[in-house]
C-alpha cells in the first residue's frame, strides 16, 4: 500500500477547553474501503473527523495523510495539502452551501485555487456521475431541490478528486424512503472513484449495509474496531453488543435479546477512571474501574479494548 492510499491517525488527543473530546484514538482510512464510525452523541466522532481534516487543533498524536503528518505542518501548508486529498461533507450537507454563490462558481472555485485546469469538463463529468443536469451550474442553491442540493454538496467535495471522503451523519434527518437513494449514490461513487470513506452515522443498520470496516467510539476512545461483518456477527465489546442489540428490527426472527444499559453516557469532562464504560457495563469487574484497557487483537480483522471481552 502506498502512502497516498492511507490516512493514519495515531493516538489522537483533542480538547475543547476542559473536555477531552478525543482521548487517544487511532484510526486508519484506506482508499477503496468505507469505514464506519459509530457511538453515542458526544462521544467525539465529529471532533475526530475534524481533526483528520485539520479543522481543529490536535493536542497530541499524529495524522499522516499521504505520507505527511498534519501536526508538523503550518496552517497554510495544511490548506494546500489536504483539500486535494481529503474532503468532508457535513450533517445536512445542503445547508452548508453558501446561498449567494452559483453552483457553477461553487464547484469551480476549489479547482482554481488548486490550479487545476479544464474546469468545465471536470465539472460536467462530475455532475453527470451524480445524475445532475449541467444547467444547474447557473443556479443558486435556493433554486434547486433539497435532494439536488445534497448531491451538489457531494459534487463540491469531490471536485478536486480527493482520495478520501469524510461524511458526518450525511443521512441524519432523511426519511427512509429517500435515504436508500442517497446511500446508493454514495456507494457507487465510492466504488467508481476508489474512495476511502469515513462514514459517521448513528443508524447501525445503515452502517452495516454500507461499510467494510467499523470503529465504535465511547467517550473519546475507540473501544472496538474491525471488519464490519465480524463486529456485527460477534461483537466483542459489551458496549458494542448493547449498541447492536438496541437497534430495532421489523422482523421478529432477527431481533436480538436486548441489552438495556443502565444510566446515561458519563460526562466527557470527568470521564470514569479505568475503562470509561465500566459505570454502565454489565460485565464490569473491579479491575475495570482501575486499569484502562488498550485495543488488543481478537482475530486478524478485529480488535477490542476490554478486559473481559465477549468471547
Amino acid at each position: 500500500m502506498t502512502d497516498a492510499q492511507v490516512i493514519k491517525a495515531r493516538g489522537l488527543v483533542v480538547r475543547h477547553g476542559l473536555v477531552v473530546a478525543v482521548a487517544g484514538a487511532s484510526l486508519d482510512l484506506v482508499a477503496g474501503t468505507t469505514t464506519g464510525l459509530v457511538g453515542e452523541s458526544g462521544s467525539g466522532k465529529t471532533t475526530l473527523a475534524r481533526a483528520i481534516m485539520g479543522l481543529t487543533p490536535i493536542k497530541s498524536g499524529s495524522v499522516v495523510v499521504d505520507g505527511r503528518d498534519l501536526v508538523t505542518m503550518t496552517a497554510p501548508e495544511r490548506r494546500r495539502w489536504l483539500p486535494p486529498r481529503v474532503q468532508m461533507i457535513f450533517q445536512d450537507p445542503a445547508a452548508s452551501l453558501s446561498p449567494r454563490v452559483r453552483i457553477g462558481q461553487l464547484l469551480a472555485e476549489p479547482l482554481r485555487v488548486h490550479g487545476m485546469l479544464d474546469e468545465t469538463s471536470r465539472i460536467r463529468q462530475l455532475l453527470e456521475a451524480l445524475g445532475l443536469p449541467f444547467d444547474l451550474t447557473g443556479k443558486y442553491p435556493h433554486q434547486i431541490s433539497g435532494g439536488q442540493a445534497r448531491r451538489v454538496a457531494i459534487a463540491r467535495a469531490l471536485v478536486l478528486h480527493p482520495r478520501f471522503l469524510i461524511a458526518d451523519e450525511p443521512t441524519a434527518g432523511l426519511d427512509v424512503s429517500v435515504q436508500g437513494d442517497f446511500l446508493n449514490l454514495m456507494s457507487s461513487l465510492q466504488k467508481t472513484l476508489g474512495l476511502g470513506t469515513l462514514f459517521i452515522s448513528h443508524n447501525l443498520n445503515v452502517v452495516a449495509r454500507t461499510t467494510n470496516r467499523l470503529a465504535v467510539m465511547y467517550l473519546g476512545k475507540i473501544v472496538e474496531e474491525g471488519a464490519t461483518r465480524s463486529i456485527f456477527a460477534k461483537p466483542s465489546h459489551p458496549y458494542t453488543a448493547a449498541l447492536l442489540s438496541a437497534t430495532s428490527e421489523i422482523d421478529p426472527l432477527r431481533r436480538k435479546p436486548r441489552i438495556i444499559l443502565k444510566g446515561d453516557v458519563a460526562s466527557q469532562s470527568g470521564p470514569p477512571s479505568g475503562c470509561r464504560f465500566h459505570t454502565r457495563c454489565p460485565r464490569a469487574m473491579p479491575r475495570c474501574g482501575r486499569d484502562a484497557p488498550e485495543l488488543s487483537t481478537v482475530d486478524a480483522v478485529h480488535r477490542v479494548a476490554c478486559h473481559f471481552p465477549i468471547a
Binding site: V176, S177, G180, D181, N184, N203, R254
Partner: peptide, 20 residues
C-alpha cells in the same frame, strides 16, 4: 415500499438499497 426501504443489519448484500 416503506418496509422494503428499512435497512437490515444482517443484510450485507451488495444489492442497491431500496428507496421510494
Amino acid at each position: 415500499a416503506l418496509i422494503a426501504c428499512e435497512p437490515r443489519s444482517d443484510d450485507q448484500s451488495d444489492e442497491a438499497m431500496v428507496s421510494i
